Simulated assay, not measured.
Amino acid sequence: MGGDTNLVLLGEIGAAQGLKGEVRVRSYTEEPADIAAYGPLRNEAGTKTIEISHVRVTPKALIARIKGVTTREAAEALNRTKLYVARDALPEAAEDEWYVADLIGLLAVSPDGAPLGTVAAIHNFGAGDIIEVDRTDGGPSMLVAFSDDTVPEIDIAAGRLVLVPPEEIEASEDGDA
């Protein structure tokens, strides 16, 4: 990303749509059409500014018109362009909500404070968020459902979150029986 780690991925341009320069957009914003509300976006390298001038939502895709793009060929040239915005351009998250970009890199600690690893990614394959932690002991990455039970505490300012691995949840439930 051109060395700027303060960028947040908001979406990705897909295939050209029609003959007049429109493109399909995969939006990662809560409401897909809101991607146009963030103002000028940047490509991954930070070398190109992309301004969405109009969006329309169809049953199959979000269709966008990009400022300055008027032909199918120009639209095709943008295919697979990732769309980023500066982190400080995003509104503050509501209480008990976080931007994924703010979670990446946090230290994951056990409930007793022992370091478990570093948050590498947050995934969602359709059934809910999964937190991926690169383990401090060098073992394989840990994938844990992101819930109040498994992540009971997040402290962005302190740079850490408490992670209760599933085996500890099962052990405590077995002990409660």
Rank of each mutant, 00 (worst) to 15 (best):
G3L: 11
L7V: 10
V8W: 00
L9Y: 07
L10N: 02
G11A: 08
I13C: 05
G14W: 11
G21P: 01
E22V: 08
E22K: 14
V25T: 03
Y28R: 11
T29S: 07
E31S: 11
A33D: 07
I35D: 03
A36P: 03
N43T: 04
N43G: 05
E44V: 14
I50M: 10
I50G: 07
H54F: 13
H54V: 12
V55N: 06
R56H: 15
P59T: 13
K60F: 10
L62P: 01
L62I: 12
L62Y: 07
I63S: 07
A64S: 12
R72Y: 08
A74M: 15
A75K: 05
E76Q: 15
E76F: 09
E76M: 13
L78H: 09
N79H: 08
R80F: 11
T81E: 02
K82P: 12
L83R: 00
P91R: 11
A94E: 15
A94F: 14
D96C: 02
W98N: 00
Y99S: 06
Y99M: 06
V100P: 03
A101Y: 02
L107G: 02
V109N: 04
V109S: 00
D112C: 04
G113M: 11
A121L: 14
A121T: 10
N124C: 13
I130Q: 10
V133M: 06
T136Q: 08
D137M: 07
S141N: 07
M142H: 08
M142V: 08
V144E: 04
D148S: 13
D149N: 12
D149I: 12
V151Y: 13
I154V: 15
A157S: 05
A157H: 01
V162N: 01
L163A: 10
L163H: 10
S172K: 15
E173L: 15
D176K: 14
